[in-house]
Amino acid sequence: MLTPTVWDASLFHASPQLAVSGEFVLRLIIDGLMIGIIYALMAIGLTLIFSVLNIVSFAHGEFYMLGGYIVYFFLQTFEALPPLLSIVAAAIVTFAVGFLFERIFLQPMARGEVERPNEYAILVTFGLAFFLQFLMLGLVGPFPKKAHRLFDLPQIEGTFFRTTKATLFLGDITISAGRLFAALIALLALAGLLWFMYRTWTGRALQAVSQDRNAAAVVGINPLNMNTLAFSMGAMLAGLAGAVLVTVYSWVPWVGVPASSKSFVIIVLGGMGSIPGSLLGGLIIGVVESLGTGLFPDPARAQAYRDVFGLVIFALVLLLRPTGLFGRKL
Protein backbone atom coordinates (compact mmCIF):
# COMPACT_ATOMS: atom_id res chain seq x y z
CA MET A 1 0.00 0.00 0.00
CA LEU A 2 2.55 2.52 -1.13
CA THR A 3 0.05 4.76 -2.86
CA PRO A 4 -3.25 4.34 -1.17
CA THR A 5 -6.11 5.71 -3.20
CA VAL A 6 -8.26 8.47 -1.84
CA TRP A 7 -11.01 5.95 -1.32
CA ASP A 8 -8.91 3.69 0.90
CA ALA A 9 -7.64 6.58 2.96
CA SER A 10 -11.01 8.12 3.48
CA LEU A 11 -12.60 4.89 4.47
CA PHE A 12 -10.19 4.03 7.22
CA HIS A 13 -9.10 7.39 8.61
CA ALA A 14 -11.31 10.32 9.46
CA SER A 15 -10.21 13.26 7.36
CA PRO A 16 -8.46 15.91 9.40
CA GLN A 17 -10.76 18.80 8.47
CA LEU A 18 -13.62 16.93 10.09
CA ALA A 19 -12.24 16.86 13.59
CA VAL A 20 -15.35 15.84 15.46
CA SER A 21 -16.25 18.24 18.24
CA GLY A 22 -18.99 17.92 20.82
CA GLU A 23 -20.76 20.99 19.47
CA PHE A 24 -20.72 19.56 16.00
CA VAL A 25 -22.35 16.33 17.13
CA LEU A 26 -24.89 18.23 19.20
CA ARG A 27 -25.76 20.38 16.21
CA LEU A 28 -26.22 17.29 14.09
CA ILE A 29 -28.51 15.77 16.70
CA ILE A 30 -30.65 18.90 16.95
CA ASP A 31 -30.87 19.11 13.17
CA GLY A 32 -31.85 15.47 13.06
CA LEU A 33 -34.55 15.88 15.70
CA MET A 34 -36.11 18.80 13.86
CA ILE A 35 -36.19 16.97 10.53
CA GLY A 36 -37.31 13.81 12.34
CA ILE A 37 -40.55 15.42 13.49
CA ILE A 38 -41.39 16.14 9.87
CA TYR A 39 -40.55 12.63 8.75
CA ALA A 40 -42.79 11.36 11.52
CA LEU A 41 -45.68 13.46 10.25
CA MET A 42 -45.35 11.85 6.85
CA ALA A 43 -45.03 8.36 8.30
CA ILE A 44 -48.19 8.85 10.36
CA GLY A 45 -50.00 9.62 7.11
CA LEU A 46 -48.82 6.34 5.64
CA THR A 47 -49.85 4.48 8.78
CA LEU A 48 -53.30 6.03 8.65
CA ILE A 49 -53.77 4.89 5.05
CA PHE A 50 -52.53 1.42 5.82
CA SER A 51 -54.53 0.88 8.97
CA VAL A 52 -57.82 1.95 7.42
CA LEU A 53 -57.53 0.84 3.78
CA ASN A 54 -55.16 -2.08 4.32
CA ILE A 55 -52.96 -1.01 1.42
CA VAL A 56 -49.52 0.54 1.14
CA SER A 57 -49.56 3.72 -0.91
CA PHE A 58 -46.61 3.82 -3.26
CA ALA A 59 -47.53 7.40 -4.13
CA HIS A 60 -46.95 8.72 -0.62
CA GLY A 61 -43.68 10.39 -1.55
CA GLU A 62 -45.37 12.11 -4.46
CA PHE A 63 -47.85 13.83 -2.18
CA TYR A 64 -44.85 15.05 -0.21
CA MET A 65 -43.34 16.33 -3.44
CA LEU A 66 -46.62 17.96 -4.44
CA GLY A 67 -46.98 19.72 -1.07
CA GLY A 68 -43.51 21.21 -1.44
CA TYR A 69 -44.14 22.55 -4.93
CA ILE A 70 -47.42 24.13 -3.92
CA VAL A 71 -45.69 26.11 -1.19
CA TYR A 72 -42.95 27.12 -3.59
CA PHE A 73 -45.41 28.42 -6.18
CA PHE A 74 -47.67 30.03 -3.65
CA LEU A 75 -44.78 32.03 -2.26
CA GLN A 76 -43.73 33.03 -5.78
CA THR A 77 -47.20 34.03 -6.92
CA PHE A 78 -48.77 35.64 -3.87
CA GLU A 79 -45.94 37.56 -2.29
CA ALA A 80 -48.33 39.89 -0.51
CA LEU A 81 -50.22 37.18 1.34
CA PRO A 82 -49.11 35.79 4.70
CA PRO A 83 -46.61 32.99 3.99
CA LEU A 84 -48.35 30.61 6.37
CA LEU A 85 -51.26 30.46 3.91
CA SER A 86 -48.99 28.59 1.52
CA ILE A 87 -48.90 25.71 3.98
CA VAL A 88 -52.69 25.74 4.21
CA ALA A 89 -52.91 25.72 0.41
CA ALA A 90 -50.58 22.71 0.23
CA ALA A 91 -52.74 20.88 2.75
CA ILE A 92 -55.94 21.62 0.85
CA VAL A 93 -54.57 20.63 -2.56
CA THR A 94 -52.97 17.37 -1.43
CA PHE A 95 -56.13 16.48 0.47
CA ALA A 96 -58.19 17.11 -2.66
CA VAL A 97 -55.90 15.07 -4.93
CA GLY A 98 -55.96 12.23 -2.44
CA PHE A 99 -59.73 12.47 -2.24
CA LEU A 100 -60.20 12.27 -6.02
CA PHE A 101 -57.76 9.42 -6.43
CA GLU A 102 -59.34 7.39 -3.66
CA ARG A 103 -62.84 7.90 -5.03
CA ILE A 104 -61.96 7.04 -8.62
CA PHE A 105 -59.35 4.31 -8.27
CA LEU A 106 -59.41 2.81 -4.79
CA GLN A 107 -63.09 2.81 -3.98
CA PRO A 108 -63.90 0.15 -6.63
CA MET A 109 -61.35 -2.07 -4.92
CA ALA A 110 -63.01 -1.66 -1.54
CA ARG A 111 -66.32 -2.50 -3.20
CA GLY A 112 -64.81 -5.75 -4.50
CA GLU A 113 -65.03 -4.81 -8.16
CA VAL A 114 -61.36 -5.40 -8.86
CA GLU A 115 -59.68 -8.72 -9.52
CA ARG A 116 -56.46 -9.48 -7.64
CA PRO A 117 -56.74 -6.50 -5.27
CA ASN A 118 -53.25 -6.84 -3.75
CA GLU A 119 -51.61 -6.50 -7.09
CA TYR A 120 -53.97 -3.73 -8.16
CA ALA A 121 -53.27 -1.63 -5.08
CA ILE A 122 -49.52 -1.78 -5.65
CA LEU A 123 -49.73 -0.98 -9.33
CA VAL A 124 -52.37 1.73 -9.28
CA THR A 125 -50.71 3.74 -6.51
CA PHE A 126 -47.46 3.27 -8.37
CA GLY A 127 -49.20 4.57 -11.47
CA LEU A 128 -50.30 7.65 -9.52
CA ALA A 129 -46.70 8.23 -8.42
CA PHE A 130 -45.57 8.02 -12.03
CA PHE A 131 -48.33 10.39 -13.13
CA LEU A 132 -47.63 13.00 -10.44
CA GLN A 133 -43.87 12.92 -11.01
CA PHE A 134 -44.19 13.66 -14.69
CA LEU A 135 -47.01 16.14 -14.13
CA MET A 136 -44.69 18.22 -11.97
CA LEU A 137 -41.82 17.67 -14.38
CA GLY A 138 -44.03 19.08 -17.11
CA LEU A 139 -45.10 22.02 -14.99
CA VAL A 140 -41.85 23.02 -13.33
CA GLY A 141 -39.06 21.28 -15.23
CA PRO A 142 -36.19 19.23 -13.84
CA PHE A 143 -34.18 22.03 -12.21
CA PRO A 144 -34.01 22.11 -8.41
CA LYS A 145 -36.18 24.73 -6.69
CA LYS A 146 -35.93 25.90 -3.14
CA ALA A 147 -38.35 28.09 -1.28
CA HIS A 148 -37.04 30.91 0.89
CA ARG A 149 -37.68 30.46 4.59
CA LEU A 150 -41.14 31.55 5.58
CA PHE A 151 -40.15 34.01 8.33
CA ASP A 152 -37.14 35.87 9.62
CA LEU A 153 -36.15 35.46 13.22
CA PRO A 154 -36.57 38.46 15.48
CA GLN A 155 -33.20 40.01 16.32
CA ILE A 156 -32.08 39.11 19.81
CA GLU A 157 -28.67 39.97 21.18
CA GLY A 158 -27.51 37.91 24.10
CA THR A 159 -24.29 36.30 25.15
CA PHE A 160 -25.47 32.69 25.15
CA PHE A 161 -28.71 33.11 23.23
CA ARG A 162 -28.65 35.34 20.17
CA THR A 163 -30.11 35.39 16.69
CA THR A 164 -29.62 36.75 13.24
CA LYS A 165 -32.39 36.72 10.62
CA ALA A 166 -31.54 33.24 9.49
CA THR A 167 -29.80 31.61 12.40
CA LEU A 168 -30.29 30.97 16.08
CA PHE A 169 -27.19 30.65 18.25
CA LEU A 170 -27.18 28.73 21.48
CA GLY A 171 -23.63 29.18 22.69
CA ASP A 172 -21.54 27.52 19.98
CA ILE A 173 -24.46 25.66 18.51
CA THR A 174 -26.18 27.07 15.46
CA ILE A 175 -29.73 26.28 14.40
CA SER A 176 -31.06 27.38 11.04
CA ALA A 177 -34.28 29.36 11.15
CA GLY A 178 -35.69 27.44 8.18
CA ARG A 179 -35.42 24.14 9.98
CA LEU A 180 -36.68 25.62 13.21
CA PHE A 181 -39.86 26.95 11.62
CA ALA A 182 -40.38 23.78 9.64
CA ALA A 183 -40.19 21.75 12.83
CA LEU A 184 -42.53 24.13 14.69
CA ILE A 185 -45.17 23.98 11.96
CA ALA A 186 -44.89 20.22 11.86
CA LEU A 187 -45.39 20.10 15.62
CA LEU A 188 -48.46 22.28 15.25
CA ALA A 189 -49.87 19.97 12.56
CA LEU A 190 -49.11 16.98 14.73
CA ALA A 191 -50.99 18.52 17.66
CA GLY A 192 -53.94 19.21 15.38
CA LEU A 193 -53.88 15.63 14.15
CA LEU A 194 -53.81 14.22 17.68
CA TRP A 195 -56.73 16.41 18.66
CA PHE A 196 -58.65 15.23 15.61
CA MET A 197 -57.94 11.54 16.11
CA TYR A 198 -58.68 11.42 19.84
CA ARG A 199 -61.16 14.22 20.48
CA THR A 200 -63.59 14.22 17.55
CA TRP A 201 -66.25 11.73 16.55
CA THR A 202 -64.81 11.36 13.05
CA GLY A 203 -61.34 10.69 14.39
CA ARG A 204 -62.64 7.99 16.67
CA ALA A 205 -64.66 6.55 13.82
CA LEU A 206 -61.45 6.30 11.79
CA GLN A 207 -59.79 4.42 14.61
CA ALA A 208 -62.80 2.14 14.94
CA VAL A 209 -62.68 1.25 11.25
CA SER A 210 -58.97 0.55 11.45
CA GLN A 211 -59.59 -1.90 14.28
CA ASP A 212 -62.67 -3.68 13.05
CA ARG A 213 -64.41 -2.76 9.81
CA ASN A 214 -67.49 -4.86 10.35
CA ALA A 215 -68.13 -3.77 13.88
CA ALA A 216 -67.70 -0.16 12.79
CA ALA A 217 -70.22 -0.65 10.01
CA VAL A 218 -72.70 -2.06 12.49
CA VAL A 219 -72.61 1.07 14.65
CA GLY A 220 -73.37 3.20 11.61
CA ILE A 221 -69.98 4.26 10.35
CA ASN A 222 -69.72 4.02 6.56
CA PRO A 223 -66.36 2.30 6.00
CA LEU A 224 -66.15 3.50 2.39
CA ASN A 225 -66.28 7.13 3.50
CA MET A 226 -63.70 6.41 6.16
CA ASN A 227 -61.45 4.98 3.45
CA THR A 228 -61.71 8.19 1.50
CA LEU A 229 -61.08 10.30 4.55
CA ALA A 230 -58.10 8.24 5.66
CA PHE A 231 -56.47 8.31 2.25
CA SER A 232 -57.02 12.04 1.80
CA MET A 233 -55.72 12.80 5.27
CA GLY A 234 -52.73 10.55 4.76
CA ALA A 235 -51.97 12.36 1.52
CA MET A 236 -52.40 15.69 3.28
CA LEU A 237 -49.96 14.76 6.03
CA ALA A 238 -47.36 13.83 3.42
CA GLY A 239 -48.17 17.10 1.65
CA LEU A 240 -47.64 19.04 4.89
CA ALA A 241 -44.29 17.37 5.45
CA GLY A 242 -43.22 18.41 1.95
CA ALA A 243 -44.67 21.87 2.45
CA VAL A 244 -42.43 22.62 5.40
CA LEU A 245 -39.33 20.89 4.06
CA VAL A 246 -39.29 22.71 0.74
CA THR A 247 -37.78 25.62 2.66
CA VAL A 248 -34.96 23.35 3.86
CA TYR A 249 -34.11 21.05 0.97
CA SER A 250 -34.10 21.79 -2.74
CA TRP A 251 -36.96 20.28 -4.66
CA VAL A 252 -37.07 18.17 -7.82
CA PRO A 253 -40.01 16.10 -9.16
CA TRP A 254 -38.56 12.84 -7.82
CA VAL A 255 -37.73 14.15 -4.36
CA GLY A 256 -40.54 11.96 -3.02
CA VAL A 257 -38.83 8.65 -3.78
CA PRO A 258 -36.29 8.68 -0.94
CA ALA A 259 -38.80 10.46 1.31
CA SER A 260 -41.35 7.70 1.01
CA SER A 261 -38.79 5.01 1.73
CA LYS A 262 -37.96 6.91 4.90
CA SER A 263 -41.60 6.72 5.91
CA PHE A 264 -41.45 2.97 5.52
CA VAL A 265 -38.35 2.73 7.69
CA ILE A 266 -39.98 4.86 10.37
CA ILE A 267 -43.04 2.67 10.52
CA VAL A 268 -40.80 -0.33 10.86
CA LEU A 269 -38.89 1.22 13.71
CA GLY A 270 -41.82 2.78 15.44
CA GLY A 271 -44.09 0.33 17.12
CA MET A 272 -46.08 -1.05 14.21
CA GLY A 273 -48.06 1.93 13.16
CA SER A 274 -48.95 3.65 16.39
CA ILE A 275 -48.77 7.44 16.36
CA PRO A 276 -46.33 7.75 19.28
CA GLY A 277 -44.27 4.95 17.73
CA SER A 278 -44.09 6.79 14.42
CA LEU A 279 -43.01 9.95 16.21
CA LEU A 280 -40.22 8.10 17.95
CA GLY A 281 -39.24 6.33 14.72
CA GLY A 282 -39.16 9.66 12.88
CA LEU A 283 -36.87 11.21 15.48
CA ILE A 284 -34.54 8.20 15.37
CA ILE A 285 -34.31 8.27 11.59
CA GLY A 286 -33.76 12.02 11.57
CA VAL A 287 -30.88 11.77 14.04
CA VAL A 288 -29.30 8.66 12.51
CA GLU A 289 -29.39 10.20 9.10
CA SER A 290 -27.99 13.49 10.31
CA LEU A 291 -25.17 11.85 12.27
CA GLY A 292 -24.46 9.35 9.54
CA THR A 293 -24.10 12.07 6.96
CA GLY A 294 -22.18 14.46 9.18
CA LEU A 295 -19.71 11.92 10.47
CA PHE A 296 -19.20 9.96 7.24
CA PRO A 297 -15.49 10.26 6.49
CA ASP A 298 -15.76 11.33 2.88
CA PRO A 299 -18.02 14.38 2.56
CA ALA A 300 -18.36 14.01 -1.20
CA ARG A 301 -19.92 10.59 -0.86
CA ALA A 302 -21.71 11.39 2.39
CA GLN A 303 -24.55 13.16 0.64
CA ALA A 304 -24.99 10.22 -1.73
CA TYR A 305 -24.97 7.72 1.09
CA ARG A 306 -27.47 9.67 3.20
CA ASP A 307 -30.36 7.89 1.51
CA VAL A 308 -28.57 4.55 1.39
CA PHE A 309 -28.47 4.26 5.19
CA GLY A 310 -32.21 4.32 5.57
CA LEU A 311 -32.76 1.99 2.64
CA VAL A 312 -30.38 -0.60 4.03
CA ILE A 313 -32.15 -0.55 7.42
CA PHE A 314 -35.45 -0.83 5.61
CA ALA A 315 -34.37 -3.79 3.47
CA LEU A 316 -32.96 -5.57 6.50
CA VAL A 317 -36.11 -5.11 8.54
CA LEU A 318 -38.23 -6.37 5.67
CA LEU A 319 -36.11 -9.49 5.49
CA LEU A 320 -35.99 -10.09 9.21
CA ARG A 321 -39.69 -9.60 9.89
CA PRO A 322 -41.44 -10.00 6.56
CA THR A 323 -44.95 -9.77 7.93
CA GLY A 324 -44.15 -7.35 10.66
CA LEU A 325 -43.93 -4.06 8.82
CA PHE A 326 -47.33 -2.99 10.01
CA GLY A 327 -47.89 -5.99 12.22
CA ARG A 328 -50.27 -7.39 9.62
CA LYS A 329 -50.05 -9.71 6.70
CA LEU A 330 -50.49 -8.21 3.28
Binding site: A121, S261, L311, A315, L325, L330
Partner: peptide
Protein backbone atom coordinates in the same frame (compact mmCIF):
# COMPACT_ATOMS: atom_id res chain seq x y z
CA UNK B 1 -45.46 -11.51 -0.19
CA UNK B 2 -46.63 -9.08 -2.84
CA UNK B 3 -46.42 -5.65 -1.19
CA UNK B 4 -43.35 -6.49 0.87
CA UNK B 5 -41.59 -7.89 -2.18
CA UNK B 6 -42.32 -4.69 -4.05
CA UNK B 7 -40.95 -2.61 -1.19
CA UNK B 8 -37.85 -4.75 -0.83
CA UNK B 9 -37.01 -4.71 -4.52
CA UNK B 10 -37.47 -0.93 -4.64
CA UNK B 11 -35.02 -0.63 -1.76
CA UNK B 12 -32.57 -2.96 -3.50
CA UNK B 13 -32.85 -1.07 -6.78
CA UNK B 14 -32.30 2.29 -5.12
CA UNK B 15 -29.36 1.06 -3.05
Amino acid sequence: RKTYLALFTIAFAEI
